[in-house]
Write a protein that binds this DNA or RNA. Sequence first.
DNA 1: TAAATTAGTTTAACCATTAAACTAAGTATA
DNA 2: TATACTTAGTTTAATGGTTAAACTAATTTA
Lengths: 394, 394
Amino acid sequence: MKTIKTGDQNLIKKINKSIVMKSIEQKGPISRAQISKDTGLNKATVSTMVSELLEESLVNEIGAGKSNGGRKPVLLYFNHKAVFSIGIDLGVNYILAILTDLRGDIVFEKLEKLEDKEPSIVIEKVIALIHDVLSHTPESPYGVIGIGIGVPGIVDTDGKILFAPNLQWKQIDLKQAIEEAVHIPVSIENEANTGCLGEQLYGAGKNISNLLYVSIGIGIGTGIIINGNLYTGATGISGEMGHHTIETNGKKCRCGNRGCWELYASESALLEEAMKLDVFKQDVTSNLDSITREAKNGNSEVIQLLNSIGEYVGIGLTNIINTFNPEMIIIGNRLAQFKTWITNPIHRTLEERLSPYSNKTTIEFASLDTYSSALGSSSIAKSNFFAQHKITVK
Amino acid sequence: MKTIKTGDQNLIKKINKSIVMKSIEQKGPISRAQISKDTGLNKATVSTMVSELLEESLVNEIGAGKSNGGRKPVLLYFNHKAVFSIGIDLGVNYILAILTDLRGDIVFEKLEKLEDKEPSIVIEKVIALIHDVLSHTPESPYGVIGIGIGVPGIVDTDGKILFAPNLQWKQIDLKQAIEEAVHIPVSIENEANTGCLGEQLYGAGKNISNLLYVSIGIGIGTGIIINGNLYTGATGISGEMGHHTIETNGKKCRCGNRGCWELYASESALLEEAMKLDVFKQDVTSNLDSITREAKNGNSEVIQLLNSIGEYVGIGLTNIINTFNPEMIIIGNRLAQFKTWITNPIHRTLEERLSPYSNKTTIEFASLDTYSSALGSSSIAKSNFFAQHKITVK
DNA sequence: TAAATTAGTTTAACCATTAAACTAAGTATA
DNA sequence: TATACTTAGTTTAATGGTTAAACTAATTTA
């Protein structure tokens, strides 16, 4: 029989210290007195926690505030530059590496093209990028405490990449390979999950605790946040909603299923249909940029196509809303750039298809541009650092 | 600013007391020494908790066990008859009320037909049933501590029934009506959610913490258990997966959507298609029993129909697995009685449609017969009782 | 019969939170 | 300017939870 997680004084302290820290992080500059009022913790408790946080360099005293009719408060603020982490967005034809502080501010970034997708070559590139980022890290109390990597594929709970179709990778233990090379803890997650975390922490989904992030690129992946936590399923591979059947006898999909949503509503679907249009017929290099250009020029065929894609997106979102009843859905990745043309068809479809009892979900587009996944990845590294009691309580 | 839930000694005690209680409930008869070894809690702590539980009549000493080479252990066991709760399954044409003890054993039950669905009449019937059950409750330390009701409709987080299509109810505050009449706490939940809880606690899903329950009756509803807890969405109305679009331009559904799963895979779909068959053409009263009869007789048309329904069930389950990657899916409610004929088509469909990386989900059928929902309902009442610190810690 | 072993309780120490008392440093006012 | 009042933050003593160690109790083993 295994030992169960029981309660002890350490647990109390961890909980309360974390509350104090979050208070300063979110509402700083703030005084000890105010924290006590806000949280219900006793002034003495707050003082104890704050002095520990000061010692750990996670919090600084920034000087005196304005008096409210008595002694001036000492204002505390969170030291965002105490800890750094690296976030990597491993795309199908690029690698983006960023260095972030605790606020999610990007301190350094580097983007590389990816041509050869051979695992060993990609891994070398990632390691080189990491070394580059490390050499650009400012002096700080803790330095770089972890690396998070978002990948376009199915990742199990141990961080192994089971299958990344667009990289043609199978069974790659990226985590181990990189940890061996750089000796910093590495976490691997699916790109939709990292994007979801990024948007929830720093983007359109701030402070939303029941949230779905729909990453529409070559395929469609989804990140699920339930009660504030990322849900990854029993074996880490939930959120494959791109493979929802929306046409029972529809096109055959690479995944084995038929009529998958992503066959009708993704970047691939858009490109495939675009190739059939007169405007693009000659243009073999037809890509998203030329579609945007034509849409901006008012090409009605193209606008009609985007309208149709938007409707298909709406059908899938209807399924998601009926399933999760979330507060918000965020649409991210490359299809989000067509926001102007797909917003209306999406809303129209939802209006048509949703039951009147389930229409409270807000639909947003990702607000972090191309950084959603990298930011979310770096946040995972931070969470792991703080979870592993490395700071709280000796 | 609201006060946050902070940590204090009370919290520790609550956690540890609950661990001790669960230990006795699940592994009793068990000694204090064994609990200490199993949980990692100190012997002294266990002794303290046990003496409180004894005082509260939740635990009894059952006598001495066999010596293991020293003093004989005193065996403790959980007093399942300390607390009773009522579970009610409010169906479309019946009401089932049960009285259960803490183990989920049914001590008394009563089933009534429901003809007039007028809310006030139904509420009267429910209240009468409750009084009947109350009069059959054995003497016990705590008596009946709550009533849970599972209803075939959309219920918000306050327990108000927003819409129950098959009862033709809208905006009915069942909770308030019944609490006023009987002065016992009442909880209302959707029937799929209560069925889900019932199966997870006492049925096919025992100890499974990532679980979907698919209730297939007139429509299809789903209960979602994530990390051991029921997930009900931002406003309490998640799990409407019966309204997943599986045919983009399919039949129009009452919910406003098109091609909803439940139009192809529910009891209604089965009955509708059955009516077209020669065997049933004359038989206006054609119902599930006659379909079972014909299937047992080997009527190939009927078996073919059930096969087709099974395939459609499989399509929806594929969607669910791709979404949630659950450990288990349990199929319940009336369609489950066709297990013999739909099991193979379901598995065949999953085999065909699931990606090789996502096929670890076990498919089970409900094992509590017609009691899933009533048992789950009564369990909600118990959970609320224990959660409301009514017992743990003064 | 004595030693060893296991079960359960008691004791004393530890430590996190907290109310209350206290120090510190300001404002308001007469 | 002196005094009263307010607010901020620390110190102190009390409370109450867990725990290691010592203890009592009861049984097996040699």
